[in-house]
């Protein structure tokens, strides 16, 4: 294990617990074909914190964020997101909770190609019940905030570059003011420069506004943007590294 790593919990600069997982387990399949994806994961994420989940392919990173985001039900252990245990509520309530409190950024962007960039961003608001016109207006504002070219707001995602699509995806993840944002490999489809810009933007727009961010990544070029890096292996967290500089600057931003 890396000597600079410590075990959780360490995050004193971050006041409120956003995610608390204890002994979370999850397996797929049954009998001899069963695969144990999570083997008792303990993890805490606090508001205002950017936590990166790293580890080799198949170690359970995506399964863990799926459980945290409430898109996958855990088998065992405890997991609360802003005090809410998904197993204690119905699937419908989980869907509503997810729609209100969680934002998603996907590796493949998952922007609906037949909608414009602005319409894609407005979707979470419309899902929450806002009418289309004000939702699209707010989406345009959000796109401006993420530095998206205004002339491209009515373009189809297929006409946008990878970096532009990821900006749209980030705007979509933020537009409804969620408390937790989960990102799956947000920079893997982007070149180095664009990847950095995207991460800078995420820190600026998400962490600074006291949200919690969990980023699953393989991309070592963006590790520097994390407050903490949790390493996973074989369905377990094997260590958590705190990057002091980011953690301190995040605390400063909040107090300012």
């Amino acid at each position: 294990m890396n000597p600079c790593m410590s075990t959780p919990p360490v995050s004193t600069p971050f006041p409120q617990i956003a995610v608390r997982c204890e002994g979370v387990t999850k397996s797929f399949g049954t009998g001899a074909a069963a695969v144990q994806a999570l083997r008792g994961v303990d993890l805490e994420v606090r508001t205002g914190e950017l936590l990166m989940l790293v580890g080799p392919s198949g170690c359970g990173k995506t399964t863990l964020i799926s459980v945290i985001a409430g898109v996958l039900r855990r088998d065992g252990g405890a997991c609360e997101v802003f005090g809410q245990d998904y197993l204690a509520i119905t699937e419908q309530e989980t869907t509503r909770f997810r729609g209100k409190r969680i934002g998603f950024v996907f590796q493949a962007f998952n922007l609906i190609p037949t909608l414009t960039a602005a319409e894609n961003v407005s979707a979470p608001l419309v899902i929450q019940g806002m009418s289309r016109k004000p939702a699209v207006a707010r989406a345009r504002e959000m796109l401006r905030q993420v530095g998206f070219d205004e002339r491209m707001q009515d373009s189809s995602p297929v006409d946008l570059s990878g970096g532009q699509q990821q900006r749209v995806a980030i705007a979509r993840a933020l537009v409804h003011q969620p408390n937790l944002i989960v990102c799956d490999e947000p920079t893997s489809a982007l070149d180095s420069e664009t990847g950095r810009k995207v991460m800078e933007l995420m820190r600026e727009l998400a962490v600074a506004t006291n949200r919690a961010l969990i980023v699953v990544t393989h991309d070592a070029r963006i590790f520097e943007f994390a407050d903490r890096i949790a390493r996973m292996e074989d369905g377990r967290i094997t260590g958590i590294e705190t990057l002091k500089t980011n953690a301190a600057s995040a605390a400063e931003t909040r107090s300012a």
């Binding site: 985001a69 898109v71 869907t95 997810r98 996907f106 609906i112 979470p124």
Partner: peptide, 8 residues
């Protein structure tokens, strides 16, 4: 994606 984002 819509389901994940909260569509029932």
């Amino acid at each position: 994606t819509l389901k994940a984002m909260g569509t029932s």
